[in-house]
Amino acid sequence: MNFLKRFKRHNEIDPMKYLIVGLGNIGPKYENTRHNIGFDILDALAKASNVVFENKRYGDVTTLKFKGRTLILLKPSTYVNLSGKAVRYWMQQENIDIKNVLIALDDIALPFGTLRIRSKGGDAGHNGLKNIQEILGHTNYTRLRFGIGDDYSKGQQIDFVLGKWSDEELKTVEEKKEVAAEAIKSFATIGVERTMNLFNKK
C-alpha cells in the first residue's frame, strides 16, 4: 500500500486546508540565492499577509487565512535535497490532500523571471522534487516554478544555482515574487487549472 492510500485511510482530509511549500536551504550563506526563491516567495506572501513564521518540526511554518481557506506555509529545514520528509510530515499533521499541495521552486529550464504552474509532472532534474517524489511515491502535486535562467558556463551549474542574484536581477525578482504570491492565493481559491490559465501567460 503506497503512502497516499495509507494517508487517506487513517486521516480525515480537510478540503479547505492547503500546504504551500517553498524549497530552499537554511542558513545565512544561502540567503538571496537563486536556489532559495521558494523560500523568498513564501516570505513575500507571509509579509503581505502580516503573518510570521515560527520554527517547528522540519521547518519554519505559519498559517494564513484567505477567503475561507487555511494555507499552511512551510519552509523546510531539511535542505532542498531532503524536502520530501517535511512535506509528508506536514501533510499528515494537518490532514491535507495531495491536490491541495503546492511546491514553489527554482527552475533553470525556464527563462529568468518566468513563472509556470503545473498540476503534475517530472522532477526536471531538481533534487528537491526528486526527493518529494521518492517520499510520496508519485508526482501528482502542483508546482510553481520560478525561472532562474541558465546563464552559466559548462560545469558551473551548481555555482550558478547557489549564487546570489545580481542587483539588476533583484528588481525583477521582487516584482515576480509578488506575482507568485498572488498565484498561490489563486490556486487555493479558484483551483490549479484556472490559475494556470491566468498566470502562465505572465
Rank of each mutant, 00 (worst) to 15 (best):
L4Q: 09
F7C: 02
N11G: 01
I13G: 02
I13A: 01
D14P: 02
P15E: 12
M16K: 12
K17S: 09
K17P: 01
Y18Q: 03
L19H: 06
V21T: 06
V21C: 04
G24V: 08
N25Q: 08
N25A: 07
I26F: 10
G27N: 06
K29V: 13
T33D: 09
F39R: 02
D40K: 10
L42E: 13
A46T: 03
S49C: 05
V51K: 08
V52L: 02
K67W: 01
G68D: 11
T70Q: 12
L71N: 05
V87E: 05
Y89S: 03
Q92M: 09
Q92Y: 02
Q93T: 14
I103N: 00
I103V: 15
G113R: 07
R118N: 08
K120C: 02
K120T: 01
K120D: 04
A124T: 05
N127Q: 07
N131D: 13
N131L: 00
Q133N: 10
E134F: 03
L136M: 11
L136A: 11
Y141K: 07
L144P: 05
L144G: 03
R145L: 07
F146S: 12
G147Y: 07
D151W: 00
Y152Q: 07
S153V: 04
K154E: 15
G155W: 10
Q157Y: 03
D159P: 00
K164V: 04
S166Q: 14
D167C: 06
E168K: 14
E169P: 13
T172K: 14
E174I: 07
E178V: 10
A183V: 05
F187D: 06
A188K: 08
G191F: 13
R194L: 14
L198W: 01
L198E: 15
K201F: 06
K202F: 15
